[in-house]
Design a protein around this nucleic acid. Structure first.
Length: 839
RNA sequence: GCGGACGUGGCGAAACCGGUAGCCGCAGCGGACUUAAAAUCCGCUUUCCCCUGGAAGUGCGGGUUCGAGUCCCGCCGUCCGCACCA
């Protein structure tokens, strides 16, 4: 009888066949409608992990479906290949980051190919190659020329041992994560991109992204952090100095009892020079951690500068000026006025330093109720505020802003939390910033004909710090402008720059330019982008910004790069722990009947809940091993089944067993048909209905990326075909099933398609189309409820008259019994659905 | 602290617009085939009870409705994001 489906042979055979036919090559010149399906490209860490497999399987399923539906599909793959892990590997093993990265890419590419993804490999790119980053340098210079790039001094976290800049996440308890050295704040001259110029349009653009998850839009909205308020100047009494503050609550100005400046504020720096106490306070404030936990527990502290400022609405009022640890230099103006009654932080501060607390907003009748330990931030009317008294908060805000503008001491402004994007990294393994520093000419762009600025290969990582800084020759160049000896910029670009435009380069990647706008326009924007939520803010915001920046300088026609976005869940796995608390890997236990016995011992492991795979919990599974055992199709099938794609998927041995079983079931259907040949006789209208309903449902499910539902329906269809008696309908149903399965299990589908004698490759076969006539049933089940409780049900012709249904319902034995002789007070009839009798 | 999502069998989950809760899969139980096992196939599988049937049931408590997993109000819990943002 039928042989088992041999996944090893089928995978090799069909992957070769697709390659030979160049099945997944995207044709720029195709007349077909275009579909651009993209998954976030991976960092080449060394091995594909199961999360990647899930991500790419989803995209692949969609891409394959679109292909069969007649779209010209662009489904590319590349490598986000610059970044720290390569440098860390270089330091640890004394190898070159480039070699390490390229080896990893080769290994991971082979892994992806084993899964049979429908990828146009001719468009593959790696961001670490000069062909890519050289074009990025060109775009950087374009943005520089357009004034969207600038250079300024900025504080960084400096690790004095590793001689490198650390990201905030790399600073743990004030120490470098790798060296353990106390981190210093250093000022460095760094390059910035003017993303804040785009704050408003990035915010407004979110409204149009209706195929994005609300969650991501909201996260971006919060990140941009728009707020409106008043910016005004405080004059320091008996002095020429002044400073600006920003507030969203100008209405509470009469409740002000102090002003406070960030420890990093320039005015504080000035004063600290002559005030050792203040200098000590500043040093102490800087030492305080910036982590969430630190901030939460940190006490509000201040230092009285001895200065006072003049209240803008009444020169007679003077407010003391403090340096305060809770005022941030990088939001607003780095200075505030404190209104303790209506701001919790100000209240805490005021209590500590015995400053007045004056209520200026109160709900009805509470004007004289003192504010105790909780600041009042609710609605109400202004009190103790002279000309503002009696106004509501909004009117008072507007009134104060109007006066400030009329009298010239302040103005209404919109403030954003978003800051300009600092892109300088003091590292080797990144895109060199194409700038030359000349003593006479300043920062000079590298001329276009000298791009790319290529990273030198002869570098070593045995000494800490950026090897570009100590390279003997690379940094020495002549100034492109005056010809005098000059030095290269040794900083490289943040790797988020690399990933901000790769999707454009996929659409069009000429050798002499970053992209061809006309060709790129044929594909962009990306129709469906799929990746993890962890990129909800940074990557997705930067890519949106980069696209808008290119749009502003006339390089591209679109403003939004990703029309549709889907954020998929993680793949999790149960955890196993030995009685002594040691974590066990899945292949150290044998699970039967919910009990995990430890292999090679008679002890029982405790089973923990399914959580994110991590090395420390040892609950990681290796895709390669699983593909070898179960086959690519079973793995792909499992990745799409069970859990909704936006939720986490719990990997389990039994789950993948089930998937492998299904592959065999489909294969059996096909090979039995191949053996038996076609059937003569009558059609099977019941089966035909099932087939067509399934076609319609699955098409919709895949459109909505609800792969788990599509999978459930395919199980049902398979079961229905298995159960059906031989008929021409059944013979036709099997190739339909194969086409529906093809996006998920393509090797199986090809093998079976060939076995049943269908012509050509199934990947080129058209997607089945449901016959609308077969989607409607002529009989429906009517539920009969008494007082809302189901008592009976019966079959009726679809569209049957209300009276007839009502009469039938009342005549049913069970209903007569349930009503117990009483006449219903009310009868609700929902045609084709139910009858509810209210007794 | 602020913002958001979610909560349904032993488990992963379905359920169009408010209309028969639990499709499908996993695990489990029973059976068939087999010398046996594997594989495969068939059946059962929310809980409880006085079991030809009945009651309860979608985190908890209320409400709207002929009818609520779905809508409204208030809690509880879990997860995620941001975090001294003036």
């Amino acid at each position: 009888m039928s042989q088992k489906f041999d996944h090893h042979a089928a995978e090799a055979r069909w992957q070769a066949a697709w390659d030979a036919a160049q099945s997944y090559r995207a044709d720029d010149d195709s007349a077909k409608p275009k579909a651009y399906v993209l998954e976030m490209f991976p960092y080449p860490s060394g091995r594909i992990h199961i999360g990647h497999v899930r991500n790419y399987t989803m995209g692949d399923c969609l891409a394959r479906t679109r292909r069969m539906q007649g779209f010209e599909v662009l489904h590319p793959m590349g490598w986000d290949a610059f970044g720290m892990p390569a440098e860390n590997a270089a330091m640890e093993r004394g190898i070159h980051p480039g070699g390490w990265t390229r080896d990893n890419i080769a290994a991971m590419r082979a892994q992806l190919k084993r899964l049979g993804f429908a990828i146009d490999w001719s468009r593959e790119l790696a961001t670490c190659e000069p062909e890519y980053y050289g074009q990025e340098q060109a775009l950087f210079l374009d943005l520089l020329a357009a004034g969207l790039v600038y250079r300024k001094e900025s504080a960084v976290n400096w690790d004095p041992v590793d001689m490198t800049v650390l990201a905030n996440e790399q600073v743990i308890d004030g120490r470098g994560w790798r060296s353990g050295a106390l981190v210093e704040r250093r000022k460095l001259s760094q390059w910035f991109l003017r993303i804040t110029d785009f704050a408003e349009e990035l915010l407004e653009g979110l409204a149009g992204l209706d195929a994005w998850p609300d969650k991501v839009r909201l996260m971006q909205e919060n990140w941009i952090g728009k707020s409106q308020g008043l910016r005004f100047t405080f004059q320091v009494a008996d002095s020429d100095s002044s400073f600006d503050v920003f507030t969203t609550r100008p209405d509470t100005l009469f409740g002000a009892s102090f002003a406070a400046l960030a420890p990093d504020h320039p005015l504080i720096a000035e004063l600290a020079a002559g005030d050792p106490g203040l200098a000590a306070f500043v040093a102490e404030a800087r030492a305080g951690g910036t982590s969430a936990a630190d901030v939460e527990t940190q006490e509000k502290k201040g230092y009285d500068t001895g200065l006072s400022v003049i209240h803008p609405l009444d020169p007679a009022i003077r407010l003391p000026v403090f340096a305060a640890n809770f005022v941030l230099m990088d939001y607003g103006t780095g200075a505030i006025f404190g209104c303790p009654a209506h701001d919790q932080r100000d209240l805490d501060f005021a209590r500590k330093y015995a400053l007045p607390v004056t209520r200026v907003v109160a709900p009805e009748g509470e004007a004289e109720t003192p504010v105790q330990n909780e600041a009042y931030t609710g609605p109400g009317r202004l009190v103790h505020s002279r000309f503002l008294d009696g106004m509501d908060v909004d009117s008072a805000n507007a009134e104060v802003i109007a006066r400030a503008e009329a009298d010239g001491w302040g103005q209404g402004v919109t403030q954003y939390r978003l800051r300009d994007w600092g892109v300088s990294r003091q590292r080797y393994w990144g895109t060199p910033i194409p700038i030359v520093h000349c003593a006479a000419c300043g920062a000079v762009p590298v001329p276009r004909d000298q791009l790319p600025v290529v990273l030198p290969e002869d570098v070593s990582f045995d000494i800490p710090g950026n090897p570009l800084d100590r390279h003997p020759t690379w940094g020495r160049v002549d100034c492109p402008s005056c010809g005098a000896p000059a030095r290269r910029e040794t900083d490289t670009l943040d790797t988020f720059v690399d990933s901000s435009w790769y999707f454009i380069r996929f659409a069009s990647g000429p050798v002499d330019r970053p992209f061809d706008p006309e060709i790129a326009a044929r594909w962009l924007p990306v129709g469906q982008y799929i990746g993890g939520v962890e990129h909800a803010i940074l990557h997705l915001l930067y890519a949106r910004f980069w696209t808008r920046a290119l749009h502003r300088i006339g390089r591209i026609g679109i403003t939004e790069p990703f029309a549709g976005l889907f954020t998929q869940g993680m793949v999790t796995h149960e955890t196993y722990q030995a009685p002594d608390g040691r974590w066990l890997s899945p292949d150290e236990v044998d699970i039967r009947g919910g009990v995990a016995s430890i292999i090679g011992s008679d002890a029982i492991a405790s089973i923990g809940r399914s959580i994110k795979m991590s090395k420390s919990k040892r609950n990681v599974v290796d895709p390669d091993a699983i593909i070898a055992t179960y086959g690519a199709d079973a793995v792909r099938w499992f990745m799409l089944s069970d859990s909704p794609p936006e939720r986490d998927l719990a990997w389990s041995e039994s789950g993948i067993d089930g998937a492998a079983r299904f592959v065999q079931r489909v294969w059996r259907l096909a090979s039995d048909l191949a053996e038996a040949g076609t059937t003569a006789g009558d059609a099977d209208p019941k089966l035909a209905r099932v087939v067509h309903k399934t076609i319609a449902a699955i098409t919709g499910d895949i459109d909505k990326l609800q792969f788990n539902k599509a999978v459930a329906r395919l199980y049902e269809l398979t079961a229905a075909i298995e159960r059906a008696d031989a008929s021409p309908t059944r013979d036709e149903a099997i190739p339909v099933l194969l086409r529906l399965v093809a996006p998920m299990a393509p090797h199986l589908a090809e093998e079976a398609w060939a076995a049943v004698g269908q012509p050509g490759l199934i990947v080129d076969a058209p997607w089945p189309v449901a016959d609308p006539a077969l989607l409607v049933d002529d009989m429906v089940t009517i539920a009969v409820q008494v007082n809302g409780k189901l008592r009976d049900s019966f079959e009726a012709a679809k569209g049957a008259a209300r009276d007839a249904i009502e009469a039938e319902a009342l005549a049913r034995d069970k209903i007569v019994r349930a009503l117990d002789g009483k006449a219903p007070k009310k009868i609700v009839v929902v045609p084709d659905r139910l009858v509810n009798l209210v007794a």
